[in-house]
Design a protein around this nucleic acid. Structure first.
Length: 813
RNA sequence: GCCGGGGUGGCGAAAUUGGUAGACGCGCGGGACUUAAAAUCCCGUAGUAGCAAUACUGUGCGGGUUCGAUUCCCGCCCCCGGCACCA
């Protein structure tokens, strides 16, 4: 009896697979295509942790299953290698990102090889390589040409002490993570993509097999709301108009008569122009304070409202009433118009504010159907539901929904209002004042202004010899590299300077799935033929944390490229599945917490198959769970026992005692197939264990061994390949097809029924399949234990569910 | 606060449309093999009572619908994830 040697066997097959090029996908193959994709990793110093394996292994099992089902499977892998951690590592340790990233990728490739996935390494992409980011820059230019990339001022997190721009994740509780100095904001001119223009299109999810949860999260993120834009003219206390006006956005035009003041965001462009002299100092102070506040602090829950009066007033367009104009930071510049009409009686935030600054509260909506109710409560609490209008001349008694339309229609006649659709979604800020990213392919010419780099001159190479330590002026480190900055204008040939910001890494990852089938093509970003055949992605697997950012950006870029005619499909990912998160002692694994668990030692000890299967056996793929290695022994035993079963002498399958084993095998084929289809790998493995427990008693026939080996192949690829060879199969088991079950073998002659009395289990009955209802009921009554509970009692009802149960209902005496 | 997902043995978990709760695995207890241990194999394993047959209790808590509820409905508690002053 030979013992299974996982390490040796796995290395043997990894080499054979590689030497034979087994997993190199021939894109031209006639078989139906299947594009199986998993979100690519970031090659940071953490290497691959068990979270990656938890994600990658089932994805690979799925790809292997589809291959065995007869598909030509493309299963590529790549590295999302631009980004902040590599740059920070460089600043700290003095190792150039090019070097550290190359080392990390090399190490991760080794880890991946040991996992034994069927990745096609020939089609790898590395986003920080010029061969890749050349096309990222090309994508930028396509958006630019279409008017979908533009520049505007936007604040960045700014540490006045380090004199540097900070990413959100470098800000902790409003402080710089490095020096703990208070973080403020600084306005910089930055590049944006007009994702808002696609808000409506992005809300269409038809034809997508995505988790409902993800769609819901994206919808909430896009945040479509229908409302009205209403114009208020500004004036002084007596109502004399200044000629200026402010538009507000509201979803509650029905409450317009209840507007008792108006509020502007501190960043509103009119703020410094409209205030009266006596208020100037107060206002400047307040704006200064608001600028220092981070978004996080400004939006903290339960925060006391603050604000200042501008000294200016506005005219309510519906009734001519003169109301004061305030400034407060609870109004956000980037939502709506950056100004609101305040209706304290019917909005909680306005209510809190009005209470604090003693502003009038006027009720204009009453709960429908209860005239007068809530009259005296409005001083205590805002009523925010829809209802019937009061104190609204000309609209009294109307319900809220109708009033919103009628009031807006009236305003529209006077050109003081209109119906608008508003979105929470903001345009995508793609500028980063960082070194380690793809340079934005734009130059600035004194004569011609902003000029895009010519496509034939791509890539704009990221210079290697740059001092990327923080400089102090808030500009990208590239600004210090003269040979990079100084260039010629593509239009007039005169002197020009390059854009020194680099692109957000989400741009890199927003189109990488398009690149894999064309990875070898250096003439086009994605060639027509391969793209037409291989995209969209059939299955995309990755973490739910990407629901609102990466997945939305990828859909947006895909739609833009579709509109531009480069690709002929709207949606990039047909089917999407999220894996659950693996925690350690309940906490998210992270390098800073020091609780990252490496897969390497487990692979060394138990082998990849065991480790992979253990991760899959832990629980449902979409659930994740807390990591512990307690149960891994069980999988190790299972693998060994499975090996022994197949390598043992074959059983004679005409033997009568073998019948139940054959039946169990086909039951297992059915169950495993169904479970894999649903990504229920845990129960698929359980079904295999159950089958094994029975099969060891009789052994397996020669032909059934082949079935069993193929059945386990997607879950334990090395083991299966080894056993396939042992039993004389032709290389490779992954080209041997997927086993099919015979329905006939699963049919049973007898049925097992349970017998209940008043819903409680009292007995069991085995009957012939063709037995009549009457016969079954009468024999059920004869069961001793059933008799005990129905004897001498009034039988009210007999329930018979064919093939399942007999239930007697008796009256308790 | 809002949105989403959960709460089942000592542990990870399982349970088509309401129909034997706890499959499978870990751990634990007992036994076999062994000079011994490891490994392996066999038996047992929700709780309570009982030699047993069996009975009662049991899927976060309290109600309801039903012959029958882990599953459906109402109210509550707790945990996890996402978003958060969105006008």
């Amino acid at each position: 009896m030979n013992k299974y040697e996982p390490r040796k066997t796995e290395q043997k097959w990894q080499k054979k697979w590689h030497d034979a090029g087994l997993y190199e996908c021939n894109l031209e193959d006639k078989k139906p295509k299947y594009y199986n994709l998993v979100m690519f990793p970031y090659p940071s110093g953490d290497k691959l942790h068990i979270g990656h394996w938890y994600n990658f292994a089932p994805s690979d099992s799925w790809g292997r299953y589809m291959r065995m089902k007869g598909y030509n499977v493309l299963e590529p892998m790549g590295y999302d290698s631009f980004g902040l951690p590599a740059e920070n590592y460089a600043i700290k340790k003095g190792v150039h990102p090019t070097v550290s990233i190359a080392e990390n990728i090399e190490y991760m490739r080794k880890q991946l090889r040991e996992m034994g996935p069927m990745y096609d390494y020939e089609k790898e992409v590395v986003t920080s390589s010029p061969e890749y980011y050349r096309w990222t820059q090309w994508v930028f230019l396509q958006l630019y040409k279409k008017g979908l990339a533009y520049r505007k001022n936007a604040p960045v997190n700014w540490c006045p002490s380090c004199q540097t721009v900070l990413a959100n994740e470098q800000v902790e509780d409003g402080q710089c993570e490095r020096c703990k100095h208070e973080v403020t904001k600084k306005d910089l001119t930055q590049w944006f993509f007009r994702i808002r223009d696609y808000a409506e299109k992005l809300l269409d999810y038809s034809g997508l097999d995505w988790p409902a949860k993800t769609i819901l999260m994206q919808k909430n993120w896009i945040g479509r709301s229908e409302g009205s834009e209403i114009v208020f003219e500004l004036c002084d206390k007596e109502g004399a108009k200044s000629g200026e006006s402010v538009a507000v956005f509201t979803t509650r035009a029905d409450t317009l008569f209840g507007a008792t003041y108006m509020v502007l965001a501190p960043e509103h462009p009119l703020v410094l122009e409209i205030n009266t002299k006596d208020q100037m100092e107060n206002i400047k102070d307040y704006i200064e304070k608001a600028r220092k506040e981070t978004d996080i602090a400004r939006s903290a829950e339960g925060r006391e409202k603050t604000g200042v009066f501008t000294g200016t007033y506005a005219v309510n367009p519906v009734n001519g009433e003169v109301i004061p104009v305030w400034i407060a930071d609870y109004v956000l510049m980037h939502y709506g118009t950056g100004a609101v009409m305040a209706v304290p009686a019917h909005d909680e935030r306005d209510f809190d504010f009005a209470k604090k600054y003693d502003l009038p509260i006027r009720e204009v909506i009453k709960p429908a159907g209860k005239a007068g109710a809530g009259q005296n409560k409005i001083a205590e609490q805002a009523f925010t539901d829809d209802g019937a209008l009061v104190n609204s001349k000309g609209f009294d008694g109307m319900d809220s929904a109708e009033a919103r339309k009628k009031i807006t229609a009236k305003l529209e006649k006077d050109k003081k209002g209109k119906l608008v659709v508003n979105y929470k979604l903001r345009d995508w800020l793609v500028s980063r004042q960082r070194y380690w990213g793809a340079p934005i392919p734009i130059v600035y010419c004194k004569k011609c202004g902003e000029v895009p780099v010519l496509e034939e001159n791509l890539p704009v190479l990221l210079p290697a010899d740059v001092d990327f330590t923080p400089k102090g002026d808030g500009k990208s480190p590239l600004n210090t590299c003269e040979s990079f900055v100084n260039t010629d204008c593509p239009k007039c040939g005169g002197k020009a300077e390059r854009e020194v910001d680099t692109m957000d890494t989400f741009v890199d990852s927003s189109w990488y799935f398009l690149r894999y089938p064309s990875a070898k093509n250096d003439k086009e970003a994605f060639d027509k033929k391969n793209t037409k055949k291989w995209l969209p992605v059939d299955m995309y697997i990755g973490g739910p944390e990407h629901a609102c950012m990466h997945l939305l950006y990828a859909r947006f870029i895909n739609m833009v490229l579709n509109d531009l005619g480069f690709i002929d499909f709207k949606e990039p990912f047909k089917r999407l599945i999220h894996q659950g998160m693996i925690t350690k002692d309940g906490a998210k694994m992270s390098k800073t917490k020091g609780n990252v668990v490496s897969p390497d030692s487990f692979v060394e000890k138990y082998g990849s198959d065991v480790f992979r299967m253990y991760l899959m056996f832990m629980g449902p793929f979409t659930d994740g769970g807390d990591w512990n290695d307690k149960g891994i022994t069980g999988i190790m035993r299972f693998v060994e026992r499975f090996y022994q079963l197949i390598t043992a002498e074959a059983a004679a399958d005409d033997d009568k005692t073998y019948e139940s084993t054959k039946r169990a095998l086909h039951k297992a084929i059915k169950k495993v197939t169904g479970d894999i289809e649903l990504f229920h790998f845990n129960t698929a493995i359980a079904a295999l264990m159950e089958f094994l427990n029975g099969a060891v008693k009789t052994g397996l026939s020669k032909e059934d061994k082949a079935e069993a080996v193929r059945l386990i192949a997607p879950l334990a690829p090395h083991l299966a390949e080894e056993l396939w060879e042992t039993i004389g199969g032709k290389f490779s088991v992954f080209d041997a097809g997927w086993p099919e079950f015979e329905e006939k073998l699963l049919e049973e002659d007898t049925i097992k029924l349970i017998i209940q009395v008043n819903g409680k289990l009292r007995g069991q009955l085995e009957a012939d399949k063709s037995e009549s209802k009457e016969k079954i009921i009468s024999s059920a009554k004869e069961i001793e234990n059933v008799k005990r509970f129905i004897e001498d009692k009034e039988l009210i009802k007999e329930i018979y569910v064919p093939g399942k149960l007999v239930s007697f209902v008796v009256k308790e005496s």
